[in-house]
Nucleic acid binder design. Sequence first.
RNA 1: GGGCCCGUAGCUCAGUCGGUAGAGCAGGAGACUUUUAAUCUCUAGGUCCAGGGUUCGAGUCCCUGCGGGCUCACCA
Length: 562
Amino acid sequence: MIRAATLREPGGASRGMGQQQAYDPYFSHWADIAARRVVAAHPDRRPIVVAAGITPSGVVHVGNFREVMTVDLVARALRDQGVPIRFIYSWDDFDVFRKVPADAPEQAMLTENLRRSVADVPDPFANDPANPVGPRDSYASHHIAVFEASLAPLGIEPEFIRQSKAYRAGRYAEGIRRALEKKDVIRAVLDQFRTEPLPESWLPLAGFCRSCGRDRIDFGWDGDWFVDMSCRDCGTKTRVDLREGGDVKLPWRMDWPMRWAYEGVCFEPGGKDHSSAGGSYDTAKQIVGPVFDWVAPEYVPYDFVRIKGGGGKISSSAGGAVTVADCLEVYEPEMLRWIFASQRPNSEFQISFDADVIKLYEDWDRAVATAHAADDGKNDKKRAVVRRTIELSRLVPGRIEPGSEPVRVPSFRPLSMTLQIYDGDLEGTLEHYRRTGEVGNEAEAERLRLRAVRVWRWIEQHAPEDFRYRIRDTPATEALSGEPRAILARLVAVLEASPDCREEDLVPHLKTMCEGTSLSAQDFYPYVYELLIARPKGPKLTTLLSTMGSTRALPLLRAGLA
RNA sequence: GGGCCCGUAGCUCAGUCGGUAGAGCAGGAGACUUUUAAUCUCUAGGUCCAGGGUUCGAGUCCCUGCGGGCUCACCA
C-alpha cells in the first residue's frame, strides 16, 4: 500500500486500523491540509479525481482562474504526498448565452444568437486580426482556446472535457434518466430554499431546440429513455433518445452532482456564489447521494479576485475583464502561482497593475530567498511555510534544499531603470548585466529575460508617470546660459576626455563639478536631466551617463552649449 | 431571512494541527550621500472589536453581541 493511503486526520479514520500516521509538519500549506482531508475521505480510491469547472460564457478571467489554481495546488499536494491523481477540467460550454459582452465584436450577430448554447454561437473573433488563437468553431471554443493557452506556461495540464460534446454523445444518459426517476427527491431538496416551490409538472431538464437552437423548451418524458421537446419560439417538436444523446441536459444544480458521480470526483472547489447555505454546492451535496449514489467531493470555497483600482468584482459580461494572459504580461509565471498559493482560498485579494507591482516583486524575491535559506533553529517553522508555498508555486515540482542558492536575478526597481536607459533593448540590457557581473551564466541570463520583458511591459503600459522616462531622440533646442552653462561645459569636457568613463570614475567629477559657482549639484541636476530625458528628475546621474555611454550622451549634452 | 468572511501597530495586512503578538509602509535616531517610494543600521508603537466559555495556556477553538463586506433565496 502506498504511503499516502495510510495518511489520516489525527484521531480520524485511522482508529482501530493499526498505528496512527504521524502528522508531517512538512506538508504545512492549506493545499496539503485539503489533500489530507481528501485522502481521509477516500482512503481506497485511486487515482483520486480532482476537478475544476468553468462556463466559457465570456472571457475566462483571472477570477475564474482561481478555481483552476486551487485544484492544481491540491493536485500538486496530493502528488507530493504520494497519491496518484486525475485532474479533470469540465468546460460547461452547454450553457445558455444570456448576455452580449459590452466589449465583444459583432454585437448584432451575438444579439441574434442570445438564448442559444455558447457552443453553437459563432466565433465573433473569427475575423479579428488581433485574435491570438485564430478562428474557432464557436464563441465558446474561442474563449476556451484563449484560456487553455494561458494555462500551459503555468505548468497546469488538466484533462479537458467539453460538456456540449459529452451530452450530445449521450454519455450522461444514465445520469439524466436517474434524475428524471428521482425528480421528486430533487424537487424536495430545491424547494427547501426556493421562494416559490417548483410546479408539480416540473422535470429536471434543460436543452436547446434542434431547429432554432434556443432554450425555451417544454419537456415531456415517456418514463423510459425518450424525452420530448417542444420549442416555444419556433414550435418545433423533437423526440430525443437519451442513449443516443442530443440537445438535452440537466440544469446546473443537478448537472453538477451528476458529473461528480460520473467521474467519481473526490475534490472540487467552488466560488463563494456556490458556497452559501442553499447554494448550488449545498443542494448538490443533498442530491448526489439519493439520486446518483455518490458522495459530495471535499470542498474548498474560494473568494473573488479583484483588480486593484478596478472597483468591484471582475465580470466577464461587463467587459474589461482581466485574463491570466494579462497577468502574465506583468508577472512571472511562478510569481503568479505564488500570488494565489500564498493567499488562503476563502479570502479575497487584489491583483495590482499599479506601483504595487514593485512591492510584490520585492516580496516575491524575499520569499524565494527565505525558502532557500538554511535553517537556523530560530524561525524554522515560519521558514518551512514560506518554503512549502514557494515549492507549490514552482512550475516543476520538487523540494527546495535548505541552504541552496536560487538563480540570481536583478530586483525590479534597478532593472526597470536599466531597461529604460537601454530603451527596452533586452539584449543590450543583458550585456550590461554581464559586464557588471550580475549575470554570470546562461541560467541567469534566461532568468533575467523572463523578468525583463515583464518589467518593460509594466513600464510601458502601467507604470505611474513618475516612474517613466525616455532618452531624447533629438537634442534639446534651448541652450543654457550663465553658471549652468559653465558647469555643463565642465561635464562635457570630462566625458570628451574619457569617453569610456566608468561609473566609479564619474562620481568624483560630479562632486566637484559645481565648485566655484553658487549652485549645488542638486541645483544643477535638473538641467542635465532636461537635456538627456526632457524631465526635471531621473535615475542616478552617474549610472545614467555611464550606462548610456558618451556616444549617446554627448550630442544631447552639447545641445545645451549651442 | 439563511450562510460565509473580515474586525490585530497611524495605514495595508500576516499570524496554516492552541504554546512568549509580526512584516511592509508611515514616524523617530544614526550612517551614507546616490535625485523615480534611494540604501543600510537601530528604535518606538497594539485592551489582537466587546463580553462569556473550554484549556495548564486562546489573536487562534466554542457561544453571544456590535460594526463592515459578500453571497444564496431566478439562472448558471
